[in-house]
Amino acid sequence: MPEDELLQGLITDLRRGMLVLAVLASLEQPKYGYALLQDMQAKGIRIEANTLYPLLRRLEAQGLLLSEWDTTESRPRKYYSVSARGRVLFDRLRAEWQQITQTMQALLGEDEPR
C-alpha cells in the first residue's frame, strides 16, 4: 500500500473516534443537517455530507439526539438537538477526551520529533 493511502487510512481512523464528540459539541442549539455541516467545516472539522447525515440518524437511533421536522418554512427541514441522555453522555465523553488529550500530550511531548 503506497505511503499516502496508508497515512490517509490511519488519519481517518484517528479522526473517526472524535466525530461523535464533535457533533454533540456543535449542537448546542438545534440545527438542521446542512447548517451543522457548514458549521463544523467552518470550525475546521473535516467531515463529509455522506458521513454526517447517516451519523445524525444513527445517533438519533441510539437516543443521543432528538429530531423534529420543521414544516413551517417553504422547505421542510429536519432539526436535530441533543437529548437529555445525549447531554449526560456528552459530558462524560468530553471528560474522557480531556483525559486522553492529557495522556497523549505527555506521551507525545516526551519524544523529540525524529
Binding site: Y32, G33, Y34, A35, A49, Y53, R57, W69, R75, P76, R77, K78
Partner: peptide, 13 residues
C-alpha cells in the same frame, strides 16, 4: 424517512 431527509438536505445545499 431517509428519502425525506436526503431531499431536504440536498435542497439546502
Amino acid at each position: 424517512e431517509v428519502q425525506r431527509e436526503l431531499a431536504a438536505n440536498i435542497n439546502d445545499m
